[in-house]
Design a protein around this nucleic acid. Structure first.
Lengths: 205, 205
DNA sequence: TCTGCGACTGGAACGTGTTTCGATTGTCCA
DNA sequence: TGGACAATCGAAACACGTTCCAGTCGCAGA
């Protein structure tokens, strides 16, 4: 049933297993941060996490699953950090731009890590649907919170069709820009500009 | 100098070489069409194109270069097909939607091929910049022609900053939608809807 | 026609993602 | 405590992208 999915935190029975999972993701992030996608070698991850190669594959059925799961964990952390304060800005557009730029800068601070995670995300195929979906939810949630009044608890927002459509387009543009930045086809300024343009075109209020 | 780029059609001296290049790209398309990204195996391409493995690598320095070059050739052909007739539709938005839907349907008719080409495009790194750029130009050109009056020769259009920004966003959304379709995260209808939404939000005239 | 040189061939070899499997360890139930 | 069963380990093996090399071919210039 779950044979082709990564083992999630909650599915893991024992503390030792949750710890193994954490060690694996930590090792993944560390290696990615040091040398990007290519440096995340399965043997290296296993060794650094102090786990056998076969075990690594039991927890994450492929390198892509592993990296996308790491991305999901990063987004989750970022989201819960942001939940602590209301988003500054007077308009939807301002707040969305603020949030995206803030996250973009955070990503750009660790280019190797971002390259690794982004490339994995883009290369993922249908078998990674669950992990990808988790990432998508985090992004949508972040944008929804920014689009609505500051201080609104995320759980109480009920987005309109239009909201969702707009968030989807903005998310797409953000991701496409990041991909271009990661692959050296766009500068950091270009990414910022793209977001600005897209948000202002989409959220003229 | 050109050591890390694919050999382009014009760079090739002899007819035999141009023919080799064509055979390689044909073999690539055929294999991709049959089994997608994974089926495009370098040994298989070489064998089918009746070329030694080393020669294949002399023409295209990696599998990604190969597939992105194939994508560029496909777009080039599609573009020159479309140049034969004016784009139907009364408004920019209508014409852009028409063109994108037409191309989307064409891509969806061969899901394996589309999967192979899209994934390669998304996975490409900085070393594939030239090939990627070629693809980008074809897409931009296609959108520019659709945004302006039907019948205008592509060479005579002088796009404004705004035009370019809008085309960029639309291109990003189109690509992101295709990626989602390829990976089973969006249906054909979803792709169509995304394009509709993005174009109507961006080209309200 | 002969010569030299770059292109091409066939095939071996290497690296890394992935699979497999027998031996060992940990855990939980009787 | 003892035993069963799953999880983990250690290590070999496989697949495919990529590199390398020695030999052959084709062709332009002498």
């Amino acid at each position: 049933m779950t044979s082709m999915n990564s083992l999630t935190f909650d599915e893991l029975g024992s503390a030792a297993q949750r710890d193994r999972r954490k060690r694996i993701l930590d090792a993944t992030i560390a290696l990615a941060s040091k040398g990007g996608f290519d440096a995340v070698q399965m043997r290296a991850v296993a060794e650094r996490a102090d786990v056998a190669l076969g075990t690594l594959y039991r927890y994450f059925p492929s390198k892509i699953h592993l990296l996308v799961s790491a991305l999901a964990r990063e987004f989750e952390q970022a989201n819960s950090n942001m939940d602590r304060k209301p988003v500054p800005g007077d308009t939807s557009a301002d707040r969305v731009i603020y949030v995206l730029n803030r996250n973009t800068r955070a990503l750009q601070r660790d280019p190797n890590l971002t390259e690794a995670l982004t490339r994995a995300f883009m290369f993922a195929d249908a078998s990674v649907a669950n992990e990808i979906h988790a990432v998508g939810m985090h992004v949508t949630r972040m944008l929804m919170r920014a689009m609505h009044d500051p201080g609104t608890p995320a759980s109480e927002i009920e987005p309109t069709e239009q909201d969702i459509a707009v968030a989807k387009v903005i998310g797409d543009v953000w991701l496409a820009s990041l991909v271009q930045w990661v692959t050296g086809r766009a500068s950091a300024a270009d990414v910022s500009k793209s977001i600005d343009v897209a948000v202002h075109l989409l959220l003229r209020d």
